[in-house]
């Protein structure tokens, strides 16, 4: 146990160090542009916890980030550089919306699972395409997932503007989904989606699946060395496609839960690049599901905190982009102890 604790400390030591250093450097920057650096920093870090309302928004922000990061972890562990989180998220959101709008008459016990399933299926389908193309035709997945992002974004734009637009509302938003299937808020935190609980549970499930099942071991073997996986009889191609199905499904679920729990409708620009930020969360957590939950919470705190900071002081919210960029730099460029062996 002692050994395990030590290795755990080692594993989180570097990220915590990088975060601390980022914050310190960021503080110098803030001090140089405002008279109230302490106030600005307090808002950035702690305004999320000032009120229950702020806290709810913080959890709502963390939910899609966590789910997308978990999806990215599945694909990366299988050796697929899946950057299609954004497209899969949009596909899940639009699919859940379409079901929720057009089948509003169905009873909630049927409609809710149907909407969620539609979101998962749409995202999974979007993950399946690059997976199959990579396995069967060796098409580079970075290209296909990036291209699919654009296709899906434009396609959902068409749908929301031409097919399911709510003409009474301002902006490119769809009609509301049936109120019967709105997710209940989290117990004790009104305004926070209970989707966050789903994300937390799925983070644990992801860890178990990847590290405590034979299926997960096979998936990781395929990701680490495909030729090795093939030689030991792992159906590597099937595992890679499955990983992409799960990855897309999780991002699609993020979209569906956003619609059902937060937006209640499809909004054209509902995502502040959740796909990309989720990817960053996964990488910062070194593609570990529990770590990704932590990094997603951290990013949610920074993203929302920046808004509060901008309101109360004259520090622009884009500071947070700078800080997160700095963090990525410090994380990836962290000093390594030379561990080469002869």
């Amino acid at each position: 146990m002692n050994e395990a604790a030590r290795s755990f400390l080692r594993a989180i030591g570097a990220p915590l160090g990088a975060i601390a250093l980022t914050m310190a450097l960021g503080f110098l920057l803030v001090a140089s542009i405002t008279d109230e650096p302490v106030q600005a920093y307090r808002d950035l870090l702690f305004a999320n916890f000032d009120s229950l309302g702020n806290f709810a928004l913080f959890l709502n922000r963390a939910t899609p980030l966590t789910l997308i990061a978990l999806g990215v972890i599945f694909s990366f562990r299988a050796g697929v550089f899946n950057v299609g989180g954004e497209g899969q998220l949009y596909a899940g959101a639009i699919a859940a919306t379409v079901v929720g709008v057009f089948f509003a008459d169905l009873p909630a016990v049927i409609l809710l699972p149907l909407a969620v399933a539609a979101g998962i299926a749409a995202g999974a389908f979007l993950g399946w395409i690059p997976g199959v193309l990579k396995v069967r035709l060796a098409v580079d997945e970075v290209v296909t997932t990036l291209m699919l992002n654009t296709i899906v974004l434009l396609f959902t734009s068409y749908l929301v503007n031409q097919v399911i637009r709510d003409t009474s509302a301002y902006g490119a938003v769809s009609r509301m989904v049936a109120k019967s299937i709105w997710l209940p808020p989290m117990p004790g935190v009104p305004g926070a989606t209970s989707g966050f609980l789903v994300a937390v549970v799925l983070a644990l499930v992801t860890w178990v699946v990847l590290f405590r099942t034979e299926w997960g071991a096979q998936l990781r073997a395929a990701g680490i060395n495909l030729r090795f996986a093939n030689a030991v009889g792992v159906p590597a191609n099937r595992r890679i496609i499955s990983a992409m199905l799960v990855a897309g499904g999780l991002a699609g679920l993020a979209g569906a839960l956003y619609v059902l729990g937060i937006g209640h409708r499809f909004e054209q620009n509902f995502s502040p690049a959740y796909g990309l930020v989720g990817l960053t969360c996964a990488l910062l957590a070194r593609i570990h599901p529990i770590g990704a939950l932590a990094t997603a919470l951290f990013y949610a705190m920074m993203l929302n905190g920046a808004a509060y900071m901008q309101i109360s002081t004259d520090v622009p919210r884009s500071l947070v982009n700078l800080l997160t960029g700095l963090l990525v730099l410090l994380m990836t460029a962290r000093l390594r102890k030379s561990g080469l062996r002869g």
């Binding site: 034979e214 990781r220 073997a221 680490i224 060395n225 030729r227 090795f228 030689a231 792992v234």
Partner: peptide, 19 residues
């Protein structure tokens, strides 16, 4: 190349087909 997943542990390599 074929025989081992070099970044995986000894345990995972020796167990690969034997779970």
């Amino acid at each position: 190349d074929r025989g081992l997943g070099v970044t995986m542990s000894v345990a995972e390599n020796v167990a690969a087909t034997n779970y």
